[in-house]
Design a protein around this nucleic acid. Structure first.
Lengths: 233, 233
DNA sequence: CCACCAGGGTGGTCGGACCACTATGGCTGA
DNA sequence: TCAGCCATAGTGGTCCGACCACCCTGGTGG
């Protein structure tokens, strides 16, 4: 019997787990710098190539950050860092799963908007209004989309739950919305969208959580139903 | 002027984007096999090392799957595949962010339970009851935790939204719950937990969505409040 | 005292070699 | 004839060593 080798999975996978464990146990603090790739490889008894694959994997997960010429650092491990990959799900989903994603977004966005109605500050509200106005003042689809995203992002931020905001960000990522919105807006949904945004804004202004929840749910629900019909027909 | 090189970011990062784009554009179907690492490296004009890092990154994201000796394949791109990384967020989050995660879970889980009350089949209900009974029949914390997880997983599955179920799975991952549950249950919360589970089951049995929503929200909310108090004190 | 810059150290890339595993096809034996 | 075995080619997994591109620091010269 040989008790030295745990030997499960690839060495790279083990290295990933080891580093994750070090962070989870607090032996590596957010923002802290790690040893060199070369040193880490020696410590874990693997080659630099395998270690680099592990580091790369943790980098795309938003756990580590590699700075060329400087070193490897643990990110701040904030919601935005770790949930950036959530956008990948939205970008690679098609068909029925798009509807499911919109359903999740409807649930979270309606709650976030309700919370925002109760907590939003005058400054944040002004920011929301800025994007609402800008959105209605142009005909450029690209610009409309940008302000639309910012409008909802500000509201999510005002809800005071960074994690929820980060998830919603992923569910509304540029490429995801561009794919769905394109067809939706081409059917002349601009007027309806404008009305729904106005309703959300009105609820925020009135600090009415229930109205805000309903308005947001209806807003996302419209797109959801349209997409469902697209797939069904 | 040289129009050949886009030259943004590292070559590995570019390779990741290229492959993601191929999948998003439908040039690579779910389950399909990719060219070999060596061929892919030649196609994208990079070294095999860099290509391997790109593949490893997409592997941990649940987009690709490498089978030793066989080849590299696109996953089915189902919710479970792509959202597996969501558990990392739960595992590496601490302090206030844990509360935020529980808040997200409360929102999604209450909705999922409400949907389940309306849609659950007799078979699924029997499965839920099985875990409920098993959970109440043992004193082994490990076993209780396992059945607790399964109890909620079955309910989430009955809601009929795989994406939501996958997110909840990540938010309830074993290590995440073990960390929070440990302290919570040590304070003699077993009885309360048992009562709350019974309430959820009763609502499912009565096919009462509103009661189910309330029971699930209260269930998660209890833990949420306890954790908030832990941090505050 | 400050601005500059050269050097060492870091991550990024490359090429090649070998190992571990899989899958295929032909061969063997019933 | 055909089922089962097995050599083998091809695949991903690992390692090594070299070089490049970039940063940061400390010394230098003004």
């Amino acid at each position: 019997m040989d008790e030295t080798a745990p030997q499960k999975g690839t060495v790279t996978q083990r290295a990933i787990e080891r580093i994750k464990a070090m962070i989870a146990e607090g032996r590596l603090e957010p923002g802290q710098r790690l040893p060199t790739e070369r040193d880490l490889a020696v410590q874990l008894g693997i080659s630099r190539s395998s270690m680099r694959e592990a580091i790369r994997a943790l980098t795309v997960l938003g756990v580590l950050e590699a700075r060329h010429g400087s070193g490897i650092y643990v990110t701040q491990l904030e919601a935005g860092d770790l949930l950036e990959t959530f956008g990948v799900v939205a970008d690679l989903s098609r068909g029925p799963r798009l509807v499911e994603l919109l359903e999740v977004r409807r649930i979270l966005e309606s709650t976030a908007t309700a919370l925002a109605a109760a907590r939003i500050t005058p400054d944040q509200l002004a920011e929301v209004e800025k994007h609402l106005t800008a959105m209605n003042a142009t005909d450029d689809p690209e610009e409309i989309l940008a302000h639309d995203l910012a409008f909802h992002r500000e509201i999510a931020a005002a809800a005071g739950n960074e994690t929820m905001a980060a998830i919603l960000e992923g569910l509304s990522s540029r490429t995801f919305r561009a794919r769905v919105w394109r067809g939706y807006q081409e059917e002349g949904a601009f007027a309806r969208t404008r009305r729904e945004h106005a309703a959300i804004h009105r609820a925020l202004l009135a600090r009415d959580p229930e109205a805000a929840r309903a308005a947001a749910a209806a807003h996302v629900g419209e797109v959801e139903e349209w997409l469902r019909a697209q797939l069904g027909g």
